[in-house]
């Protein structure tokens, strides 16, 4: 475990020193500026706009950073030959992958926490911040966090065997398909050819249903879910987190298998 933490700490240190976290500043400044601006033009709708903008921003920035950093996480170690000094140390290859993921996940958690703080500050400035609304927002942000972790695991998986560009394309494809799972499932259901229907249904099973994690404005169990009215409870958050954790674990397991069989020439 100490070895995993050593790799994780180093991954976090790299993210901080490579100034990835500073992208947050851009987000924070842009968000506060837009809140001030939108407060002028959106009569009585300031808090709704802020919440929508905030949650959308947290999800977008979280996923983008997960993809951009995640796709080169392992590839860079191989390309820059830093693994040559590390793997001959008493370190299992799976511990290396796990350490990279934990370090990246910790980096993203801090980013999401900071973005959440900015969102809450913006809402407080508008006088729209209460315990109840905070609880709803935190549930939505918890779901976004799980989604970001799943995307990170997917990016790490592709990063173990292909270039950052291709990893980026594949991970983005998984993200877009995953977010559109309900629509695609419905489309596939309308296919007349049973073989095609079976093939596409099976293919959809290979992609995590990311729609589960972005619930604002969608249907959950036949009810419209919105951060302004009905919203998912903690039981749903727990169930979705379990689904996401299972997906991330399986994808990481595949990453470990691929990485443990590789030759580092």
């Amino acid at each position: 475990m100490n070895r995993v933490l050593a790799i994780a700490l180093n991954t976090f240190r790299e993210a901080v020193r490579n100034k990835v976290l500073y992208s947050l500043l851009v987000f924070a400044v842009a968000m506060i500026a837009s809140v001030l601006l939108l407060a002028q033009v959106s009569l009585h709708e300031e808090s709704r706009v802020t919440r929508d903008l905030g949650l959308g921003g947290i999800a977008l920035f979280g996923v983008l950073i997960a993809i951009f950093v995640g796709v080169s996480l392992v590839y860079k170690e191989i390309d820059r030959k830093t693994v040559f000094a590390l793997l001959p140390k008493p370190l299992h290859r799976f511990e290396f992958i796990l350490g990279k993921f934990v370090g990246m996940a910790f980096t993203l958690l801090i980013q999401i926490a900071l973005m959440t703080a900015v969102l809450f500050t913006a809402l407080s400035l508008q006088g729209e911040f209460s315990g109840a609304s905070a609880a709803i927002l935190i549930r939505a942000i918890a779901l976004i966090t799980v989604e970001v972790m799943v995307i990170t695991a997917v990016a790490v998986f592709f990063s173990t065997f292909t270039s950052p560009f291709l990893s980026g394309v594949f991970t983005l494809a998984v993200f877009i398909i995953g977010r559109s799972t309900p629509e695609l499932t419905e489309l596939v259901g309308k296919l007349e050819n049973p073989a095609l229907r079976f093939g596409f249904s099976a293919a959809l099973e290979l992609v995590p249903n990311l729609h589960l994690f972005y619930v604002s404005g969608s249907m959950v169990d036949g009810h419209a879910v919105s951060i302004h009215a009905a919203f998912v409870d903690w039981a749903y958050v727990g169930w979705a987190a379990g689904y996401g954790a299972a997906w991330a674990a399986v994808v990481l397991l595949f990453s470990m298998v691929v990485f443990s069989r590789r030759d580092f020439v």
Binding site: N10, R13, N18, F84, A85
Partner: peptide
């Protein structure tokens, strides 16, 4: 103890 050829280490450390 191992020293790789033309060693590359984490250059931010």
């Amino acid at each position: 103890g191992f020293l790789p050829e033309n060693p590359y280490f984490y250059d931010y450390l």
